[in-house]
């Protein structure tokens, strides 16, 4: 788990306390994510490697549903791993965890492939804190208040 986590993960059973997870190897992208989520007082845990993320997911597997992440933000461009393979593994192992792909350049081929593998959304990373803030607010609102508590858009 990243030391940059600035939000305390909720252990409560309410949807509003369940954290978002973010997997991104880019420190710059993680830092802007954490900054805007923190500013919005939205719980988030960020991970820089797949192993860290999987370890945390495994650790929480047998906990109450409220301990599980509400959704996952996933960067497909990671060193030494194929982002689409990561997505496939995550969707297979955690079928109830909505995975939203954050892409540096969400071109149509990559977008289509991600949706085919079970991504709940594909979003191009924006430029600037203001754009990130808007994105974070919208994403969190959707998964916390609009979408079903569990399950993934297919």
């Amino acid at each position: 788990m990243s030391s940059e986590s600035e939000a305390e993960p909720s252990t409560g059973g309410r949807t509003s306390d369940r954290p978002a997870f973010a997997l991104d190897d880019s420190e710059a992208d993680r830092s802007v994510l954490l900054r805007v989520y923190h500013r919005l007082r939205l719980p988030i845990l960020s991970f820089s490697t797949l192993d860290e993320l999987l370890g945390e997911l495994d650790r929480r597997e047998n906990l109450h549903v409220d301990e599980l992440p509400l959704y996952l933000l996933l960067d497909l461009s990671m060193p030494d791993v194929d982002g689409l393979s990561v997505l496939q593994v995550l969707c297979a192992r955690h079928p109830t965890l909505p995975a939203v792909v954050l892409s540096g350049s969400a071109r149509s081929g990559e977008r289509d492939a991600a949706y085919r593998l079970g991504a709940s959304g594909v979003i191009e990373k924006p430029l600037g804190v203001a754009a990130w803030t808007e994105l974070a607010r919208g994403l969190d609102h959707y998964w916390r208040h609009v979408a079903q508590p569990v399950g993934r858009l297919r």
């Binding site: 880019s26 710059a28 992208d29 830092s31 900054r35 540096g104 350049s105 430029l127 804190v129």
Partner: peptide
């Protein structure tokens, strides 16, 4: 091009941080 965007976003975002 893809890899150029990551540091570029970083520069842009850190400039925002600096300004804020």
């Amino acid at each position: 091009a893809h890899d150029l965007k990551e540091p570029l976003r970083g520069i842009f975002n850190y400039v925002d941080f600096l300004r804020e």
